[in-house]
Amino acid sequence: MVDTAFIVEVIIIWIKVVVVALVLFSMPLALTWIERKVAGHIQVRLGPFRVGPHGILQAFADMVKMLFKEDVIPDRADRLLFKIAPLLMMVPVFAIFVAIPFGDKVTLPFTDRELTLYISDMNVGIIYVLAVSGLAVYGVIFGGWASNSKYALLGGLRSSAQMISYEVVMTFAAVGVVMLANSLSLVDIVRSQSGGFWHWNILYLPVGPVWFFIFFIAGLAELNRIPFDLPEDEGTLAAGYHVEYSGMRFAFFMLGEYVAMVSISALAVVLFFGGWDDPLGPFAFGIPPILWFVAKVMVFIYIFMWIRFTLPRYRYDQLMTIGWKVLIPISMANVLVTGFMRI
């Protein structure tokens, strides 16, 4: 049963997993630098400038600093939960990338092997992604609970309420996309949008843009980013759920948040912006599809940062109002409209 083809297959999957994991691990280093640069320039400053040319090594300096910091565990904290909470936050956001397709098949040079640029094409990919991304909130809740601190606990509770409200909205947006693509597999969803930007779900008028906005707002809320970063609201909660964390454990939380940002960006690209599809469709001039994917994800990451340094934070009741009283009714109406359009 175990023949060479099978072994080669396993090795290839291993290589893909390792490559994706390495890329994701190194991503936050670049992203913190980019985020601080974007913040600086939006505020007419320069951002980090002293470590390396244009401060490009700042992230490494920060990493070294984090590694050498004391790892403080509060006296009455629940030690086990406190230790595993950052990992609980980090693992699910990495696991999301198992299902995300970065590109279609490519033929390896010098061999005639076909290589798929995704780790797995599950036929229920979108459900897997939603389920796994919902798990990340356990890290936040446990972190808040285990710290034995009021601020952290409140942060954790806020996060759980936020997650419950917006998970519903997010799922609705996914339902919309599934209705448009007639498939739950992320690869098929991308394929259904191929052939130029006018085939993308965002331009499926009139429901496409609405679905996208619903997805985007829910995504912002799931990421705990401004304007919905209530679990770590500095103004009222010091630093929210990670107020007691320091050193590498804190860095893991940050890592988790950045990778989550990448994952939501990738998901937005896959669901609404045609994944690896060339926007020029038939007039394409041969830019490899994977580059298109990366470029689109980068644009989204920039948008997240841009929004962060533009908008103020919402109040907690406003957050809930937007979720339950605005987005869910709109989603329901939109499901109806989409259904009629697909008859």
Partner: peptide, 10 residues
């Protein structure tokens, strides 16, 4: 502002 020149004196 993001595209404008920064006013920082290095």
């Amino acid at each position: 502002y993001n595209l404008s020149r920064s006013i920082t004196i290095r």
